[in-house]
Design a binder for these strands. Structure first.
Lengths: 145, 145
DNA sequence: CAACAAAGTTAGTCACGTCTAACTTTTTCT
DNA sequence: AGAAAAAGTTAGACGTGACTAACTTTGTTG
């Protein structure tokens, strides 16, 4: 029996956790509570708490004191979230915004972008990259306004 | 003494309330608790509760059983929020997204867009309106992907 | 003008996601 | 191996913003 394609209603907080966990796994090979807490700038206690809820929700497997692993559905979700984050960052970067603003705005809005909007922004980004003149104007105007 | 330019840390919920309140005032001339509740799809009790907090925060003047009025800072804030909402909607509309998606996404992300990002999107929207060929391609690709 | 309806309010509860303080388990270091 | 440090957990609390149920005030209408 293949993994069921569970339609989830994940909160922004849950998405943030998954995003960081996947990032840690990709860079360090594993995700410890301390590290997750440090990246999200919240307490370890809060992380333990959420990790237990993510386990209950089937997004990861958690063993007390021993660590955690994403389930296949958790990982799939985390990858989508990460991709969405990347596409949005690329788009804002193209518009000439500074890294801090990009990080802040993407962090806030990424949880609210539907697949079709994301597709449109992706396509737009592609085309804009071939429009250096237009981009120059946009960046200039955005700076001056 | 002129009104102080108070730098606020308004939550998404507060922004949603202000947006609806201004909309009601603009269309009906006043904002009643029932109407706010109906537009936001929440209970009247919740609205009463929030209205009292907005009063305490100086964003509106509220008199029990009698109604409410935005203060000048509340109105200024509400106008900014409304403008931001409008600009984001226009941008997504330009990309060919359907009204329901636009409403949903803007409702979610509007609270997280910084002024500089908004300026960039505004400038971009202006220029894209002169690029029908590019827009046609983007819309098509977003549909197909 | 009395009664009924509509609008508004209060009180109490809840879920979410955070926190600190205290405690337990695991790891590291000598 | 034993002590100290680091990591992890639990318990209890809090703010935000929603809810329902019960109540009060205001408005309407015969």
């Amino acid at each position: 029996m293949p993994a069921k394609a569970t339609q989830r209603h994940t909160s922004s907080a849950v998405e943030d956790y998954l995003e960081r966990i996947l990032e840690l796994i990709n860079t360090k090979g594993y995700a410890r509570v301390v590290d997750i807490a440090q990246r999200l700038e919240i307490s370890q206690a809060s992380v333990t708490n959420m990790v237990q809820r993510l386990d209950a929700g089937g997004l990861l497997k958690y063993e007390k004191y021993r660590g955690l692993v994403l389930t296949s559905s958790g990982e799939a979700l985390a990858r989508n979230i990460t991709r969405r984050h990347q596409l949005l960052s690329d788009f804002l970067k193209l518009l000439g915004l500074d890294d801090e603003t990009i990080y802040h705005d993407v962090e806030g809005m990424e949880h609210h972008i539907s697949p079709s909007t994301l597709r449109a922004i992706e396509a737009l980004t592609q085309h804009l990259q071939r429009q250096p003149v237009l981009l120059t104007k946009v960046r200039k105007e955005a700076r001056e306004d």
